[in-house]
């Protein structure tokens, strides 16, 4: 019932205009704390020294790259089944954010790989599937660009999003299913996190900050898409009005 009420575009605009500024403030606070803690306060790692500090941006970016795709696929499924424009717009709004997170995950991972592994890039299952994710985001965004009819674009894009969602569990479990150069999971795994609390806390704050960032930008982008739709409607009505007059 709550979902239903929130799903009304006009109501969504009203509520999100109240929520978004608060999300923005919280994003800034947690991001500054998290990044500063990660850069300057967290202790050096016993194996990697200070190089491991890249974890505080790499893991949140990678996690969000997958979370964002999951969100996009879920919204697309809702869009296909219930044919609600707000669901399609949510998925469309999430795509560039996810693409940015994916690019950052690949870039920071590459700069972490060079000093530690000895290479910027290797075609192992984890790295390759993350690169596929970036191309899925690009493909999804390209559909919206290429197809003029918005409702048709929404349907094709949603199918791309749903087909691609298979890749998300592949990324997550790639390090367990195949042998890779990339190490296995440190936080979400059976037997608890294998990372010391002094390093885990700043990491969790960074993950929270990236989540809040996602919500903030998502709300802004959905607002934009709703407004653009209403602008199209208004233009049509004005054109009709002038013609009739």
């Amino acid at each position: 019932m709550l979902m239903h009420k929130f799903a009304n575009p006009a109501r969504f605009l009203r509520i999100s205009k109240i929520i978004a500024p608060w999300c923005f403030i919280l994003t800034m606070i947690s991001l500054v704390i998290g990044l500063y803690w990660g850069l300057f306060i967290a202790p050096d790692d016993y194996q990697m020294g200070s190089a491991y500090r890249i974890i505080f941006v790499h893991v949140p970016a990678s996690y969000m790259s997958m979370f964002c795709y999951g969100f996009m696929a879920f919204a697309s499924a809702v869009g296909i089944i219930w044919k609600h424009p707000l669901a399609d717009q949510s998925a469309r709004a999430a795509a560039p954010i996810g693409a940015a997170f994916t690019a950052l995950a690949l870039f920071t991972g590459s700069l972490w790989g060079k000093p530690m592994w000895g290479t910027y890039w290797i075609w192992d299952a984890r790295l390759t599937s993350e690169l596929v994710l970036l191309f899925l985001y690009f493909g999804y965004m390209a559909v919206w660009q290429a197809v003029d009819d918005q409702s048709k674009a929404a349907r094709i894009a949603a199918i791309v999003a749903l087909v691609g969602v298979i890749n998300v569990p592949i990324i997550k479990f790639s390090v367990d299913w195949w042998n890779t150069l990339h190490q296995p999971a440190s936080i979400i795994k059976s037997g608890g996190a294998s990372i010391h609390p002094d390093m885990l806390w700043p990491l969790l704050i960074c993950i929270l900050a990236f989540n809040l960032y996602f919500i903030t930008i998502l709300l802004w982008r959905i607002q934009s898409l709703i407004l653009q739709r209403q602008i199209r409607g208004l233009r049509l009505r004005i054109a009709e009005g002038t013609n009739n007059g």
Partner: peptide, 30 residues
């Protein structure tokens, strides 16, 4: 941070830069 600063700073800079640019574009177009 020693020798690794060369790798750490570009990572943090890229994150701040990309997130700021995307944030600004989204806010501005809204």
């Amino acid at each position: 941070m020693g020798d690794y600063a060369l790798y750490i700073w570009p990572c943090y800079s890229a994150v701040v830069l990309i997130m700021s640019v995307l944030g600004f574009i989204s806010w501005n177009s809204k």
